Amino acid sequence: MLDAKTSCLLRGFAGVIFGILALLIPEIVLGTFSGLFWVLIGIGIALFLFLAISAKHDESIFWFGMAAALLIIGVISVIFAQFVAILLILIIAAIAIYNGFTDIMLALARPKSKYVLIPVMVISGFVLLAVLFSYFPSIMSDPALSVVGTFALVFGLFSIMLGFYNPDDSDGDFAAGRAACEIPDDRENR
C-alpha cells in the first residue's frame, strides 16, 4: 500500500496528464478510450468464459450469463460507438470528482485552510474553463471532454499541492506527523 503522500502525488499527476491530453488531443483520447473499452470487453469475456468452464455446475450458468452480457454490451457499443467513449470518459470524470471530494475532505480536516481551499479549487476550475473557452473556441468541439479534462487538470494540480504539503512546516494547521493526503482517523485517539 502506498503512503498518503505518494498516493496523492500519483493521483495528481494522473489527473494533470489526463487533463492536458483531453484538452490538447480530444480525438485521440476518445479513440484510446474506445480501444481500451474493447480490450476490457475482450478480457472480461475471456475471464468469464474461463470461470464458467472451470466453475462448479451450479455457478457455471452465472459466468456464462456474465460473458453473454458483456457480448451484448459489445454489440450495443458497435451500434452506438460514441456512447461508449463518452461513458468511459464519464467514468474518468467520476474518478476525478471523487479525487476532488477527497481533497475537499482533506481541506475540511484542516481548520485553517478549509474555508480557502474548497472555493479556490472550484472557482479555479470554472475560471480555467472560461479562459479556455474564450481563448480557444475550438475546444468547444467536444464540450464534455473539455469540461472533464479541465476539472481533472485542476483537481490534479490541487492533489499535487496537497501531496507536497508538509505538515511539520505548518503552525498547527494539521497534526504533526500526519501526511497531507491522509484523512484523520479518530480511532487513534481512543
Rank of each mutant, 00 (worst) to 15 (best):
V16C: 08
P111T: 11
T32W: 10
A85F: 03
M66K: 07
V84W: 00
F133C: 14
D3V: 02
G125M: 08
Y165L: 10
F151W: 11
S141F: 12
A46K: 13
V116N: 08
S60G: 05
G31E: 15
G100Q: 06
S77N: 09
D173F: 10
G163L: 02
V39K: 06
L70A: 04
W63L: 09
I28D: 06
S77E: 09
L162M: 11
V16I: 13
P111C: 10
F33E: 07
M140C: 13
D173L: 07
G74K: 04
S141P: 07
L88A: 01
E188H: 09
L47Y: 12
R178S: 14
L132E: 12
E182W: 09
R190S: 08
E188C: 05
M140P: 02
N99L: 06
L117P: 00
G44A: 09
V78R: 13
H57C: 05
F48M: 08
Y135S: 03
L117A: 04
S159M: 04
G19N: 07
K5H: 11
D142F: 13
F101W: 15
A14T: 03
D186K: 14
P184Q: 12
E59N: 04
S54D: 10
N166G: 00
V16F: 06
S170I: 05
G74R: 07
V122Q: 01
L23A: 02
A96K: 00
V147K: 05
I79A: 14
L36H: 10
S159T: 01
F136A: 15
G74E: 06
D3R: 09
F62A: 13
R11C: 09
H57Y: 08
L145Y: 03
L90C: 12
A14M: 10
G65S: 12
L87P: 02
V84A: 01
D58C: 08
Y165S: 04
F33V: 13
A175I: 15
I61W: 14
W38D: 03
G74A: 11
K112V: 04
M161E: 06
D185G: 09
T150C: 10
A96F: 01
A180G: 06
S60D: 06
F136K: 14
I104K: 09
M66E: 08
V127Q: 14
S77W: 07
V147R: 05
Y98A: 11
G163T: 01
V78D: 11
F83N: 12
I28Y: 08
F151R: 02
L70C: 03
W38S: 01
D169H: 08
L117F: 06
H57P: 07
L129P: 06
A152M: 09
V131G: 10
G42E: 02
L10Q: 04
R190L: 12
M140E: 15
D142N: 14
L157H: 01
P167W: 12
C8T: 05
A93K: 00
L106N: 01
A22Y: 00
V116E: 06
V148G: 00
F174Q: 01
E27T: 05
Y165A: 04
A94E: 09
G156A: 05
L157S: 03
F37P: 00
I160E: 06
L51Q: 12
L2D: 08
P137W: 10
N189R: 15
L21D: 01
I123S: 12
I86C: 02
C8Q: 05
D142L: 14
A109D: 11
F126P: 03
S159C: 10
P137T: 04
